[in-house]
Design a protein around this nucleic acid. Structure first.
Lengths: 202, 202
DNA sequence: CGTGCGTCTGAACGATCGTTCATACTCGGT
DNA sequence: ACCGAGTATGAACGATCGTTCAGACGCACG
C-alpha cells in the first residue's frame, strides 16, 4: 500500500515535471495533454488518474513554485538581520538565485498563471501581491530609517516603481542568463543584490 | 481603386487591432481565428483575404511594434545629445513611455513572439538583440568616459546585467502601471530615467 | 487463492482547431 | 449595361482538442 502510493507519487511527479518542461517551452495553451502523456510514457487518459484536469496540473505547478519562493524569501529575510540594506540585498540576491535555479517553473508561473480558472488565478494573484509588498515594505522601512531615498526622485510613491524594477530584474533573469556562460549564478545573484542597493540608495 | 484599397486597408487594420486585443488577453495560442473574425464582424474565412495565416497576423503585430520601438529609441538618442547620462536617461524614459502607451502590442511582442515560425522568430530575435546592444553600448560608453561604474560591482561584464535590469524595468512597466492611478505616464517615464541612472552611476 | 483497489489502455465523445473553396455580392472603370 | 477585381459568405475539410469510460492488468491484502 505504502509502496503503491510512492509509485503513484512518482508518476504524479513525472507528469509535474513534464508540465514544467512543456509549458515552459510551448506555453500552457500551446501544450497538449497528449504531449504531456507522451513525455511521461503514458496515454492521455491516464493523466486523469493523477490530475483532475489540465488546469489542475497548471495550478499544481504554479502553486508549488510560489511555496518555494515564499520559503526562499523568508529564509533570506531571516538570515539578513535587521538592517534594511542587508535585507534588500539578501532578498534581491536570493530571489535572483531562485529564478536562475528554476527557469522553467518560474517562467510558467509568471507567464501562464493567467490561464488558471478565476478562483485559482485569484489565489495566485494574492500571493504575487504579497511578494510585491514584501519588497516594498523593506524599501519603505529603509527610507524611514534614512538609508534609502525615494522622495528625492520627485515622483510620489516612487517606492512602487523601484520595487517593481528590482522584482523584474530578478524575475526575468533566466531569460538572458546563460548557465554555460562565464558568469556563475552566485555572481549574478550577488550582482543583482548590489544593483538593488543602487536603485534604493541613490 | 484608391478608395477600394483604403477600405481594404481599414479591414486589415481592424483585424490587426483585434489581434492586439485578443492576443494580449488570451495569448496567441489561446486565441481562435473565429474569435478574431467575430471581433471584426467577419467570418473566419474572410480573414484569409487579408492575412495569409494566423502566424502572419502575429508577425505583422510583432514586426510593427518593433518598427515603432526602433523609431522611439532612435528619436530619444538623437534628442539627447552626446552625454551618456543624458542618453541613458532619455532611452530608459522613452522606452518606458512607449510600453505604457502600447501595453497590448508590447506584451504580445515580448511574450508571444516565440510562437512565430522559425524564420520570422529569428528575425524578431535579431531585432531584440539590437535593442539590448543599444542600451549596453551606452552603458559601456559611459563607463569609458568615467560617468558610469560597473567594474566596482566585482562581477565581470556587469554591463549586461545592468542593461537587462534597465530594459526589464521598462518592458514590464505596463504590467503594474495603472493609467487610472495617481501617477501619470510621464511621471513614471521620468522616474525610470532616474532609476536607470542610479543603476549605472552607482 | 481470490478480492479489490489503483492504474493503465484504447476507443470514443462532442467540440473546436486553422484553413480552403465554390459561390455570390459590391462597385469602380469602360 | 457589362466586366472584372476584391471581398464576404457559409459549408466543408481533416486534424486535433480536453475529457470520459469500459474493460484489462498488476499487486498488496485477507
Amino acid at each position: 500500500m505504502l509502496n503503491v502510493r510512492s509509485v503513484t507519487g512518482d508518476t504524479r511527479e513525472r507528469i509535474h515535471e513534464a508540465g514544467l518542461a512543456l509549458f515552459h517551452e510551448r506555453g500552457y495553451t500551446g501544450t497538449t495533454v497528449r504531449e504531456l502523456a507522451e513525455a511521461c510514457g503514458l496515454t492521455a487518459g491516464s493523466l486523469y488518474n493523477h490530475y483532475a484536469s489540465k488546469d489542475d496540473l497548471l495550478f499544481a505547478i504554479v502553486d508549488r513554485v510560489h511555496d518555494r519562493a515564499d520559503a526562499v524569501l523568508a529564509g533570506a529575510l531571516r538570515s539578513a538581520g535587521a538592517g534594511p540594506e542587508a535585507q534588500l540585498e539578501a532578498l534581491a540576491s536570493a530571489f535572483t538565485a531562485f529564478h536562475i535555479a528554476r527557469p522553467q517553473a518560474t517562467r510558467v508561473a509568471n507567464r501562464d498563471y493567467i490561464y488558471l480558472p478565476p478562483a485559482q488565478r485569484e489565489s495566485v494573484v494574492r500571493r504575487r501581491r504579497r511578494v510585491r509588498a514584501l519588497f516594498a515594505d523593506v524599501l519603505r522601512q529603509g527610507e524611514r530609517e534614512g538609508r534609502f531615498s525615494f522622495a528625492v526622485l520627485g515622483s510620489e510613491d516612487a517606492v512602487e516603481a523601484a520595487s517593481m524594477a528590482i522584482l523584474n530584474m530578478a524575475v526575468w533573469v533566466a531569460e538572458w542568463f546563460d548557465p554555460s556562460g562565464p558568469r556563475t549564478a552566485q555572481d549574478t545573484a550577488a550582482l543583482h543584490g548590489r544593483l538593488a542597493l543602487r536603485i534604493a540608495r541613490g
